[in-house]
């Protein structure tokens, strides 16, 4: 299958990108790594008038340290994220989840920012960004704005990035102290999307769980925080029993979809099991 024809723009700076987006006509798409956009264009589920290729915008690539955050450029590829020492040190949850994304060929092209803006409910990085309370820096004609992960994911395949805007970078807080993290993903075959997955970051203190942050993948049209589990874990003893009791709340308030991979009630069951596993591992149990 061959995509429909489109106008092609290849800017080299963020300012030029914004200009190209403004001039791109009715239907303009940003091409990051292309590992979701190109398949969709090949199927002609998308036939944008203009494609703005970010491949030459050097300022969008790379990971850097800035005070109490690490800043990941939107065009940093999954394989560059995996190889990055700052990510490994301060956000191992990101590395762990990224390693499960698709396959090595896709990880060479696919980007951190692209996966987040695409916001596929079965994508692995949105729930991780949500669990880590990441901040998203968005550039637009009026300048730059920063919004939190809780406001970023709006609906199915929809984020707070508006027409004419561009996700520039994502700020991940360095989780200081004794944080443990784990991403528990359930899928059936190689390179498959998550049926359900759970991202957990847990801070232990004196044999107790002081704080837990839990993100759920594919339990609704957007990634979700498992707030009831987080509340049940705060201050709980770091024991398998306490974790299991808290994890039993993981599916509360969720409305996952039913599809060929799983029925909704099975997804809700998986959420409790995977939450228990993710938290247990993150807490070193």
């Amino acid at each position: 299958m061959i995509p429909a024809p489109f106008e092609y723009a290849r800017p080299t700076t963020v300012d030029e990108v914004l200009q190209a987006l403004a001039e791109g006509g009715e239907d303009v798409k940003v091409l990051a790594g292309g590992q979701s956009l190109i398949p969709v264009m090949r199927l002609r589920l998308a036939a944008p008038e203009t494609v703005v290729d970010l491949g030459r915008v050097a300022e969008l690539r790379g990971v850097r340290e800035e005070d109490d955050a690490i800043v990941v450029g939107a065009m940093t590829t999954h394989s560059d994220v995996l190889a990055d020492p700052l990510i490994r040190q301060y956000a191992p949850l990101v590395a762990e989840a990224t390693a499960t994304v698709a396959d090595r060929q896709v990880r060479h092209r696919g980007t951190f920012g692209g996966a987040l803006v695409h916001a596929d409910p079965a994508g692995d990085l949105p729930a991780v960004a949500l669990a880590l309370d990441a901040d998203f820096v968005i550039a637009g004609p009026e300048g730059r704005r920063t919004i939190g992960a809780s406001e970023f994911f709006v609906d199915y395949l929809t984020t707070a990035v508006q027409e004419g805007e561009l996700l520039v970078e994502v700020r991940l807080p360095k989780l200081a102290g004794s944080w443990g993290m784990h991403y528990a993903k359930f899928n059936r075959v190689a390179q498959a999307w998550s049926i359900v997955a759970v991202a957990a970051a847990v801070r232990r203190e004196d044999g107790r769980i002081a704080e837990a942050r839990i993100g759920l993948t594919n339990m609704g049209p957007t990634p979700l925080r498992a707030r009831q589990v987080e509340e049940a874990l705060a201050g709980a003893e770091a024991t398998p029993e306490a974790v299991a009791a808290a994890a039993a709340h993981a599916a509360e308030g969720t409305e996952p979809s039913s599809d060929l991979n799983a029925q909704a009630d099975y997804r809700q069951h998986l959420a409790t099991v995977l939450t228990r596993r993710a938290v247990s591992t993150a807490a070193g149990l």
Binding site: Y8, R10, G34, I38, P39, D53, S79, Q105, H108, R109
Partner: peptide
């Protein structure tokens, strides 16, 4: 993955890359 080639030394699926890229 049958169409895998290397671009700048990295394996990619060449059906999922535009030639202009």
């Amino acid at each position: 993955g049958a169409c895998t080639v290397h671009v700048d030394g990295e394996a990619v699926k060449s059906c999922t890359v535009f030639a202009v890229q």
